[in-house]
């Protein structure tokens, strides 16, 4: 199958960025979604995007992941066969990329899971979509992944509707990572979870990202999340990127007025 072309084992030259975004803009009529965004994401790097509600974070993420068509700009991804502008790809190519090299973790696990299908089926779906046709090995992979996201193997034949919110989110992560993607998009992965569950999920995510050498783009409004996970940080306001740099540098020494406001408004316990 053509899947080999987008193989997870692709050798990417370390001197080339995994994802290179240039001049990306999306407008909703006269209003700005996000405008003139440019950045490079290097293999193994985690990029955090923070900003208040309506600042264009989710619009940007949807444009990057191909869910929305931006008005201008390019998103060049280092596929196994060389850098390709994903916005100029044909739809079959882009969808194949989305289920092999990419993964998308939704804020609400109900958007990313099939609620009528068992946990095992949910994890196995991406494997079957890339051609796995052996029940035993699909089941083994599903069991393995449930273990890695700390879901008991005895729950493999339960439906996600019987799971708690935190478990659903972990199941969604397992389902996305099972094919070994190289780039993961996450839209507020910890939103809607209580703090202790959040902490466990973040711990798990950090482990998986480091262990698998994933690159990730994480959209969130929670500065604690980016402090823990992200190597680099982008701060957005009204569709513009107002500041970007190393996470610790931006959070500890914010330059832009809005970033200063954002950092100072975090509640302390």
């Amino acid at each position: 199958m053509q899947a080999t072309e987008m193989s997870i084992f692709a050798k990417v030259k370390p001197q080339a960025p995994l994802l290179s975004v240039k001049g990306l803009s999306k407008r909703y009529g006269t209003r700005i979604g996000c405008t003139d965004v440019a950045f490079d994401l290097w293999p193994g790097e985690v990029l955090g995007i923070v900003g208040e509600s309506g600042s264009g974070k989710s619009t940007l993420l949807s444009c990057l992941a191909g869910h929305l068509a931006p008005d201008t700009g390019e998103v060049v991804f280092a596929t196994a066969s060389g850098p390709r502008d994903t916005l100029r790809m044909t739809e079959p190519e882009r969808r194949r990329l989305a289920r092999t090299d990419w993964a998308f973790v939704h804020q609400n696990p109900r958007d990313g899971l099939r609620m009528g299908v068992t946990a095992g089926g949910n994890v196995g779906e991406r494997l079957m979509a890339v051609g796995a046709r052996n029940y035993g090995s699909i089941r083994d992979a599903a069991t393995d992944w449930l273990g890695r996201v700390e879901i008991d193997a005895s729950r493999i034949d339960d439906r996600p509707s019987a799971f708690s919110g935190g478990m659903q989110q972990r199941l969604q992560i397992a389902r996305n990572l099972v094919t070994g993607p190289r780039l993961v998009f996450m839209d507020e992965p910890t939103g809607g979870l209580d703090v202790s569950v959040q902490a466990r999920l973040l711990d798990l995510l950090r482990g998986l990202v480091r262990e698998m050498g994933l690159s990730a783009i994480i959209v969130t409004h929670d500065l604690a999340v980016v402090r823990l996970l992200a190597d680099r940080l982008m701060v957005m306001k009204s569709g513009h990127v107002v500041e970007q740099g190393l996470t610790d540098q931006v959070l500890d020494d914010p330059q832009h007025a809005y970033t200063q406001l954002l950092v100072s408004s975090v509640l302390q316990v």
Partner: peptide
Amino acid sequence: GLMHVKLY
């Protein structure tokens, strides 16, 4: 792939 999810 989804058709095989049903069989799974």
